[in-house]
């Protein structure tokens, strides 16, 4: 752990964040007016916690800006899905475009933030989120590698430990990389942690002290 001048805020009077509280913490950190891509799975929940006054525009890599909430009932249209192939809706001001344009806006640095899930993140911001490397696993990368190097800021939402208790924030990723030095911040139920060239720095913790968590993580 590097020493930073920014002190860690420890919330010791409560337990870890639940999934909705975590999504709300991520949503609150998204700058007003940002263009944002939310990855498949846990990051999708962030959309439920964005406030209208933030003026955030959601991008989906299958060719849309101004994506609205999940479609229900009669709103379901097979021609309108998000990147997870879930039927969604469009908001006023939406725009459609083809795949090369969609990834050009991503890789061209026009997307402010993307929020991704991960298997592992290194303390210097390497990301592993596309392949476990297990024998027989079918590799599937989708847009993860393009998002990782394209968005100006890459946030990761993940648990800090595997089901068997192994840290997922590590010195060096052992899973195949998605991108090098691309993640700037990890959001987990126990802590928000900045990562990057200067190493990991805990911004906030919930239900645990920074020192205890650092010890459990082996950092």
């Amino acid at each position: 752990m590097t020493t930073e001048t920014i002190p860690t805020v420890e919330h010791l009077d409560r337990g870890p964040l639940d999934q909705d509280e975590l999504a709300a913490v991520v949503a609150a950190d998204i700058p007003a007016g940002a263009f944002v891509n939310l990855g498949i799975g846990q990051p999708t929940k962030v959309a439920d916690h964005l406030r209208p006054e933030q003026g955030v525009t959601l991008h989906t890599e299958n060719g849309m800006l101004g994506m609205g909430p999940k479609a229900v009932g009669d709103e379901v249209d097979p021609d309108l899905t998000n990147a997870g192939k879930v039927p969604v809706t469009e908001l006023p001001g939406a725009a459609y475009f083809h795949h090369a344009d969609s990834f050009a806006m991503m890789r061209g640095g026009h997307l402010d933030v993307c929020v991704l899930g991960a298997y592992q993140v290194s303390d210097h911001g390497d990301l592993a989120n596309w392949h476990t490397g297990a024998p027989g696993a079918i590799p599937a990368v989708g847009g993860a590698m393009d998002l990782a190097i394209g968005a100006r800021q890459v946030f990761v939402m993940m648990s800090l430990f595997t089901k068997t208790g192994e840290p997922k924030l590590v010195r060096e990723c052992t899973y195949p990389l998605t991108g090098r030095g691309c993640v700037c911040r990890i959001y987990s139920n126990e802590a928000v942690i900045d990562v990057g060239p200067d190493g990991a720095h805990m911004r906030q913790t919930w239900g645990t002290s920074a020192a205890d968590l650092a010890e459990r993580l082996g950092l």
Partner: peptide, 18 residues
């Protein structure tokens, strides 16, 4: 894929389009 009856080349989505 598992029986080896089809070959797979995985390409990042943006590269596929570009």
């Amino acid at each position: 894929y598992r029986t080896g009856d089809v070959e797979l080349e995985v390409v990042p989505q943006g590269n596929l389009a570009e």
